[in-house]
Design a protein around this nucleic acid. Structure first.
Lengths: 207, 207
DNA sequence: GTCTATAATTCGATAGAC
DNA sequence: GTCTATCGAATTATAGAC
């Protein structure tokens, strides 16, 4: 397979699908609205991706892979510095990459990707696909939290971890609403929002 | 369906819609699947409710009204006992009613209603309807939290309040999954889960 | 109020020419 | 690889008999 160059049909389809899936959800977005936005033919989607579901999988994986890699890289850096990192340091490595793409993406692309990540957990049909895309990250961070909080049982840490992810998802989905934790896309404001969220989540994890 | 033989046509439709909307989401549930489950005619939905959207509004409001009333009643009771209730007491009044319907409801009705409440925030088209149904509760509890935590700014309390609601929604939506915070529907387990969630949320609110 | 029948769209998917 | 044309099925909604 040839790697997609800029303006490629596949890339045009993925870009349009990413934006529309993020805005409207997966089930509510028709292939016809995607081909209108991408300015391609309807048959091109089936030629390149096979079906709507395979397009959804490809869209999610393209969004998730850089985030998972960044999360694992930050955790590895933290662990290399301190053999036993604090809960705050682990949560920072876990939450920062997803929030940072909001302003690292070119134009509105970052906000779109953030919403798409959040949307992976809002539709029951889609949730397994999203869980699969983020599985490696989830397992690694849950293990790190168990080492940092050895007094808490696995089941307790599991539902707390789940609640922290739920908070991240909410922050991502509500990133453009008034009174959101993330007020604007500036690097300084994003860094401050990450600290607020880490602090809030760490207090709950230790409770 | 046996249960469909009870009640009038409107109630049969609302019962079936409640269950299917909760399981599959609003957009993914067709009127035809509802009339099959309710054992009524397709035209009956349009005769009694006018359109799919109006049926969604009616279903959400029927679910939300008892919960909002219970939340406001519990908060009033807490405030009557102590003029300045603790954060934990406020959060308990805010979180307990929604979780308690899980086992107070007859049969699986409670779990269905809990999932439906959670689902109100997962589809962007539906979120304004759900926010409207819970608006009175949201305003009242945000005011109570501002009085209990006067050192925190309104914007800070607003996004923290939003995160607590996000956690509640997650608990409701994941109520039947393994490793969830709510392991089973017994009153004792539900009360314990409420305490865990209140403790987790209070730690974050005070952070 | 309840039903049958159907209108009017929209959807995902595919065949086949180029 | 890209296009036109279309299939078959699903959807919401409505008209009109009873």
């Amino acid at each position: 397979m040839v790697s997609a160059s800029f303006g490629d049909t596949q890339t045009q389809i993925l870009d349009a699908a990413e934006q529309l899936f993020a805005e409207q959800g997966f089930g509510a977005t028709s292939l016809r609205s995607i081909i209108r936005a991408a300015d391609v033919n309807l048959a091109a989607i089936h030629y390149h991706f096979g079906s709507k579901e395979k397009l959804i999988v490809a869209t999610i994986e393209r969004m998730a892979q850089p985030i998972v890699q960044a999360e694992l890289k930050q955790l590895a850096a933290v662990q290399a510095e301190h053999p036993q990192p604090t809960v705050e340091a682990i949560l920072h490595a876990m939450l920062a990459p997803a929030l940072e793409i909001v302003y690292h993406g070119q134009g509105d692309r970052g906000l779109t990707q953030a919403r798409l990540m959040g949307r992976c957990r809002t539709e029951p049909t889609i949730e397994p696909i999203g869980a699969q895309a983020f599985a490696k990250s989830s397992q690694t961070f849950l293990t790190a939290l168990q080492q940092a909080l050895p007094d808490q049982s696995t089941s307790e840490l599991t539902w707390k971890f789940d609640l922290v992810i739920a908070m991240l998802i909410r922050v991502l989905c509500a990133a453009d609403q008034p009174n959101a934790i993330l007020q604007d896309n500036s690097p300084a404001e994003t860094a401050a929002a990450i600290e607020r969220l880490v602090h809030f989540a760490a207090a709950g994890m230790k409770s």
